[in-house]
Amino acid sequence: MPADSKREVGRRIATIRHARRMTQTDLARTAYLSLATIKAIERGARAPSDGSLESIAAALGVDPGRLITGDTITLSRIRMAMPAISASIAAYDIPMSPPRRTLSELHAAADEAVNWRLAAQYTRIAKHAPTLLDDALRSLHHTTGPDQRHAARLLVGIARAADAVAYKYGHHDLSARLIELMRWAARHAEDPLVDASTAYVRTETFFAAHAYAPGLLALEQAIDASSSPTGPEGQAVLGALHMRAAVIAGRAQDADAADTHLTEARRLGDAVPEDEYHGTAFGPDSVRIHEVSVAVSLGSDHVGRALDVASEWTPPGDLPAERQSSFWIELARAQLWAGLTDDAWESLQVARLVAPQHTRGHPWARETAATLRRLRRADAEELTAFAEWIGAV
């Protein structure tokens, strides 16, 4: 059992259960546990085993990391999964045995993995990614024509989910290999939208290497290749590329390029609904979040831009949890630079509530927590606990 008290874990479970409008009987039935076990866990009389915790989390539709704050479930299991993910893609270009799932079964599993990524449920991705990647590769190698193109698109989505875990938990070499797998699979998909989505993700390799100018060039080449999109899906993909280009331009300290790409992203964002999705959520709300990200990327001199956005708008609850969490983490950084330490601390707590695993793996959240701990005296005990949880001490 992690460092949380049994009572704290039980309280979190009960709170989320109430939010889902589930009774204890509903939860017990869905989690395949006895009603007496659920009651004992919620009142803090019993600590859930790892297996019980996973069952309860699955029944509530959250990651186990939402229920606990310790290392046992999240970090250790993700670390253990990395070699298996690496092995599953080692021979990606060599045909292996026939697939074990039909394409429709693989499609359903791939959709589930994408939903886990959007909800920042990384332990679930890590657990299932090796098998999913293996099945998708088998399907691609043992199909032809439209079925092969379909399998290639599914492989791109699954590899991206696995990459989200590898990149966010610092396994950048594996992340780069997964991105190369995506680029290879995209050629088999023969779909310009898949190519553009893959170019969006490839930017991670430039972020990891701090190679911001080449990364901006690569994105601008992808934007040129995606010119004149037709329909909301194409506009959303192009808009997402502009959002990403604005952020990496900010990291490169190229304010003019950042503003140019943000302007294009706003224009395209106004033309599509917020729930338009093709690998990356895009719409007016997503653009606003990236405005904050660009301001923070440009540095402390631009902090006012981030605070202006936050003064009149916060992310709606139906946006992907990972994207909401990013907003609060980046806003916390801006608030810290502006001397608003109480506000920065509150923003970090919101980020953790929305997507604990994403927050814990974000270097800016870690840096902000460490700085706040040095500066603050109020709430010292709670802040220290947070800093220990995120690895800032």
Rank of each mutant, 00 (worst) to 15 (best):
S293N: 10
V165N: 04
V156R: 08
D259P: 00
A344C: 07
P99A: 08
A209C: 01
L178W: 04
T368M: 06
A225E: 15
I89T: 09
D147R: 13
A199L: 07
L348C: 08
R29G: 01
T205Q: 12
P316L: 04
A14P: 02
I125A: 11
H290F: 14
A344R: 06
D301K: 14
D308V: 13
T280K: 11
A45D: 15
I38D: 00
E180H: 15
I329H: 02
S326W: 12
Q221I: 14
A129Q: 09
G10N: 12
A265I: 02
D173Y: 05
E220R: 15
V156T: 11
D191T: 02
F206M: 03
E312S: 14
T72V: 14
A265W: 03
D275E: 11
S76F: 09
E233C: 05
R153C: 12
P2M: 08
L193M: 11
R183N: 06
R12V: 11
T74W: 01
E276V: 10
V114D: 11
R17Q: 11
R266A: 07
D191W: 07
H141Q: 09
P320H: 09
L132R: 14
E264G: 00
I68R: 08
R377N: 12
G234V: 07
H278R: 14
D308A: 15
R11W: 01
A355M: 06
T263Y: 04
I94G: 02
E346T: 15
A245V: 12
L241C: 03
Y122K: 03
D163Q: 15
Q253M: 10
H141W: 15
A249K: 07
W364S: 13
L181H: 03
R177W: 00
D93W: 10
S97W: 00
E190I: 04
L238Y: 03
G250Q: 09
D93H: 13
A334W: 00
R149H: 12
A108G: 02
L67K: 09
V272Q: 02
P356Y: 08
H188L: 03
A380K: 10
T30R: 15
D308C: 04
R101V: 00
A209Y: 02
R11Y: 01
I68N: 01
R352K: 08
P83A: 12
P83S: 11
M1C: 03
L375R: 14
P363N: 06
A208H: 12
M182N: 04
H128I: 06
H171K: 08
D270S: 09
E54C: 05
S326Q: 13
A332D: 05
A306D: 01
Q24R: 15
W364G: 00
E367N: 13
R138D: 04
